[in-house]
Computed example of a mutant assay.
Amino acid sequence: MSGMKQKNFSERLSAARDAKQAMAAKFRQRPGSDDPAVAERRAARAAVSAARDVRLAEREAQRRAENAQRATDEARLAAEREALAAEQAEQEKRAAAEKAANEVKLEAERKAARDARYAARKARK
């Protein structure tokens, strides 16, 4: 490792000072806040931000409109289901009433047939 050069303390101090000066010079080269390029970039960022806010507001409005539409659709479907259920209940009620009427009629026919058989048996004796 004889190829390595040993630096003494003053050389290291001067290298550190040079590095700090280079960093400070680089920082000073940055444009100030009153520079037209900086103002232009700031305005462009503000325009992008405003456009983003507009898009977010549009999406929120669209989402609310879809939710309102979905709610009205659900309410309409619920009303249709309720009407259908009421109609089916009415049909079942009518069917039960018809069945009861048929049972009464059938029972009356059976009784009449039984009475006719009884009367025929009595007439034979």
Rank of each mutant, 00 (worst) to 15 (best):
G3D: 13
A44V: 01
A79N: 08
A108R: 11
K125N: 13
R114W: 05
Q62N: 07
L84W: 05
A46C: 01
L13R: 12
A15G: 10
K122M: 15
K7I: 04
R30I: 03
A97K: 05
G32V: 04
A120S: 15
E11G: 08
A120Q: 15
E92W: 02
M1T: 11
A61T: 02
A97T: 07
Q6G: 06
L13F: 09
R110K: 14
Q29W: 03
A25F: 08
A22V: 07
A50K: 13
A89I: 02
K99F: 02
A37C: 00
P36Q: 09
A15F: 06
Q91R: 15
N67R: 14
A97S: 10
D73N: 11
L106H: 08
A116I: 05
M23P: 00
K7A: 11
K125I: 08
N8T: 11
A113E: 14
L13C: 12
A68R: 06
A43V: 01
A22H: 08
A47E: 14
D34F: 03
S14M: 11
Q88T: 07
A39S: 08
V104A: 12
A37W: 08
L84G: 07
E74R: 14
R45V: 02
Q29S: 15
A113F: 03
A15I: 11
D53F: 00
A120R: 14
R42Q: 13
V104Y: 01
E107F: 01
A120M: 11
E92Y: 02
R117W: 07
V48K: 10
E80N: 06
S49C: 04
R42T: 10
E60G: 01
D115S: 09
A57H: 06
E74F: 05
A113K: 09
A51H: 06
A78N: 09
E74N: 12
R45I: 03
R12D: 05
S10R: 12
A123S: 13
E103M: 06
S14R: 15
L77E: 10
E40M: 08
R117H: 08
R114Q: 10
K111Q: 15
V54H: 05
A61P: 00
Q21Y: 10
D115R: 12
R52V: 00
T72I: 05
A61W: 01
K125Q: 14
Y118L: 14
E92I: 00
E87V: 04
A116F: 08
E103K: 07
A47H: 05
R114P: 00
D53Q: 13
K99P: 00
R28N: 15
R63T: 03
M23L: 14
A113D: 06
F9M: 12
E40S: 12
A39K: 15
V54Y: 01
L84T: 08
L106S: 12
A65V: 03
A44E: 09
S10H: 07
A86N: 09
G3F: 10
A39R: 11
A37E: 13
A78V: 01
S2L: 13
E66R: 10
G32Q: 09
P31W: 02
R114L: 08
D115Q: 14
E82Q: 15
A78I: 02
L56F: 03
Q21D: 14
S2V: 10
R94M: 07
A78M: 09
A97G: 01
A39V: 06
L106W: 07
D115E: 15
D18L: 13
